[in-house]
Amino acid sequence: MRGQKRFAWLMATPTIIALIALGIVPLGWMIWTAFQSFPPNPANPPQFIGMRNFVDLADDPQFFGSLRTTAIVLVFSLSLQLVLGFLLALALYSIERGRGLIVSLLLIPTAIAPIVAGIVWWMLFNARFGAINSFLVQFFGIDPVNWTIEMPTALIAIIVAVVWQWTPFVAIILLGGLTTIPRDVLDAARIDGASGWRVLRYIIVPLMRPFFLVVGLLMIIEIVRLYELPFFITQGGPGNETVVAGVYLFKLAFSFFDLGRASMMSVFLVIALSLVAALYMRLVADRRMTVN
């Protein structure tokens, strides 16, 4: 028995060391740099400035602007992803043939690199050479829309891209949830007089609650880390209207070289994401949440 524990620890140690070295150490480093000021020349050592970065960040309208933009994207994308994803999941659930092939095709957007997704939608939304304007002009006779350089269309473009990339994933997770509902239970509901949409409302939706929560939390994390799509589609414009948290963090760190303030912002993001993650863990660990 002793040997067993020792063996197990030996097996886990490399991972633990690696995660500490490149997971925990940077975190500590980040907290340390969050209280430093970095001179423009990397040869000069950073200086401890206490809470100055925090105060600066708290005073920074662009920081709050980026949070606000992220929040807007989050609210719209998440609702669309959950509603459309659930609709798609229900559709996939009710077909018998060809599900594997369809799901593979639907998952392509999720499997594509975010940077490529950004490129694709940047091309599609291009005012002159993009497919969307071409479609609008040719079929509806609408004047071309300057999608990516005007508000609110720039934000809409980003939301469309996010929805495009992640809705299939949401749908597949929810489909996995649907398949855990015993067929007998659905049959029983029909026998008991629940019509199609009442089965949905009284049986399916309540039983899917844990799956909605889990996939919702995963999506929150995805959207908080959003960088590539806005970076490529709008480059933050017009003005700073589409600068989301990730884009602003990059700007702080690598355009303004204000590494101290960027670290402070990272600390903020890590804390926010950890809260989301903790919620997720609670959910997953709570066995009663899973449908048996």
């Binding site: 980040m30 963090l249 990272s266 993001l269 890590v270 993650a277 903790a278 997720y280």
Partner: peptide, 13 residues
């Protein structure tokens, strides 16, 4: 839980 820290959150450190 490490899975939830996206690269972007740690890129600066």
């Amino acid at each position: 839980s490490q899975r939830f820290l996206p690269p972007i959150a740690l890129v600066v450190p």
